[in-house]
Design a protein around this nucleic acid. Sequence first.
DNA 1: AAGAGGCCCTGATAGC
DNA 2: TGCTATCAGGGCCTCT
Length: 287
Amino acid sequence: MPELPEVEIVRQSLDKKIKGKIIKKVIVKNRNLRFKVPLGFEDFLKNQKIIEVKRFSKYLNLFLSNKRICVIHLGMSGTIHLVKSKKKNNMTNTSFYHSPFLPKKHNHIEIFFDDLKLVYNDPRRFGFVDIVGNYKLLEKKFKKFGPEPFSSKFNSNYIFSFLKNKEKNIKSFLLDQNFVSGIGNIYASEILYLSKIKPSKKGRYLNKEECKKLENDSKIILLDAIRKGGSSIRNFKNIIGKEGNFQRNFKVYQREGLKCKRYNCSGIIKKKNISNRSSFFCNSCQK
DNA sequence: AAGAGGCCCTGATAGC
DNA sequence: TGCTATCAGGGCCTCT
């Protein structure tokens, strides 16, 4: 579920529900995520208060009272669940309510608070967690990333100068976290549709006007997705209680063979593999 | 340097 | 109560 809007939704819920709470216990049931869960991960977290839950790109950043930051990336299939405790000050596993939403398998990490526990679930294990020593190091880590779409740095001049001379297609650039941070496979297609740009168009063929469209439309799509609670595809995607609604607003994603939704367009939505990821676009209005 | 492709992993679904 | 192939919201690595 994890592109920028979905991670932001998780961040908002987490910030609301665990900020100010103290971590009592951490259990790592499976250290083999995308990267090995670092040695001592549990000890870095234990007895720390959650100061704030932030986000950069698709990364969740839990700011701890010991100045360290717990970084979480959900990969392709990672989800976070909060389970309430029956009674306070009881940390044993059996003291927690059974949650019908909590998956039976792939609950790799459990973080216990007094009255609830946070569960990191990830069937494919493409996600990972890390501990960053301090805020300076976190800044350094994200410095090599491209700007977020909401940043003033992501403007048409930046886009135009980045793409000129580039042979690679624009769809791949939207997924390239060195160019722009936080956009994934769904929203890349949706943004290009709104901008009326063909996903296979080479970077160097985008004119100033199209770059301006990308600047604006990226913000429009992502903000709208956040406002609607993100996208929940494939049945259950309970983002801490809530389900997203943006999937109802998809104009092209998973709409192969259907009519273009633009009122004056008679095009058909096509699906094409670009750089090993599926891309959806209208064969008529995207140039 | 830029771009293409492989790979990490499990589960849902389509087709036989 | 089949099997097998394909595909899935990400991103790192290697090779050319």
